[in-house]
Simulated assay, not measured.
Amino acid sequence: MTETSGFLEREDGERLAWKAVAGQGPTVVWLGGFMSDMAGTKAQALADWAMAKDRAFVRFDYLGHGESSGAFRDGTISRWREDSLAVIDQLTDGPLILVGSSMGGWISCLVGAVRAERLAGMVLIAPAADFTEKLMAPGFPPEAHAALAATGEWIRPSLYDEGGYPITRGLLEDGARWSILPGPVPIEVPVRILQGAEDPDVPWAHALALAQAIKGEDVVFTLIKDGDHRLSRPQDIARLIGAVEELAG
């Protein structure tokens, strides 16, 4: 099997980059994290698995991420949710397994709730539900609040980007409108959650709260004692692929 690629044209002229493997079974859809992209270790591992096992798989970049067009500062949870729905509706058919990492775990829940008739299962990695309101904003320093009040934007320092990255008032206000905790979260398919106990970005108790909020009974929460936020080590990738294979059948 080979992977194809292309761009999905949005109504406003922006273009979403995607890659897909045409295979069997439910289509596995990768939903990446905040400031992440479809070239990451976990997404690539799933693409390799799909090609080796003849499985249907789609990965893509949100607006302002990776190979897609648009400015990152223009992104919101609403927009990235719409991007995800556009990819699912235009590039896939039949049952879906949503695999969401960090912010992608939150977006998976938002998408799954409105495509329930197609949803077959979900695998969530360090799911950052409501992260803008509950995980990000509480840690802002005074200068962040001052900048957001004055200009609507704060450049947040980053270990991964020397210039930092913009956090906008629009992102925060929009995120609050999509809050799903404390629930109930209207997902009733099998869900597998992989969470590192040493995750500095998403505390394990926060991810567990999402597991408890999901309406379905077939929810398995796996706490990886020495795991970090990325969960990209070989043993973590093996757990991820095992969870996807279990749900894909």
Rank of each mutant, 00 (worst) to 15 (best):
A116L: 14
E117T: 13
D174A: 04
E173G: 06
A146E: 09
A128G: 13
E162N: 09
F131D: 05
E173V: 13
Y160S: 09
S158P: 10
G139A: 06
K134L: 11
A113C: 11
D161Y: 15
G121V: 11
G170H: 09
G164F: 12
W154G: 02
L171W: 04
M136E: 12
R118Y: 15
L124Q: 03
A150Y: 00
A126I: 01
T151Y: 07
P138W: 07
F140Q: 02
D174R: 02
A128T: 04
L172P: 04
V123Q: 02
L135K: 04
G139M: 02
I155A: 03
R156N: 13
G139R: 12
I167Q: 08
L148C: 08
E133C: 02
L172E: 07
A126D: 00
R156H: 15
A137E: 11
R118H: 14
R169D: 05
E162G: 11
M122R: 10
T151G: 11
T168Q: 07
I155M: 13
S108T: 05
G121A: 13
L171Y: 07
P138H: 01
A137T: 08
F131Y: 13
P127Y: 00
V114F: 05
P166H: 11
I125Q: 01
G163A: 15
V123S: 04
V123Y: 03
E133T: 14
G170L: 05
H145R: 08
E153W: 01
E153S: 10
G163P: 12
T151V: 09
P166C: 05
M122S: 13
L159R: 14
E153D: 03
P157C: 08
C109Q: 12
A147D: 04
P138C: 02
L135F: 06
L124K: 02
A149M: 01
F140R: 03
P141S: 10
E173C: 04
A147F: 00
H145L: 07
R156Q: 15
T168P: 08
R115T: 13
G112Y: 10
D174Q: 05
A120T: 10
P142R: 06
I155Y: 05
E143G: 07
G164T: 12
F140L: 12
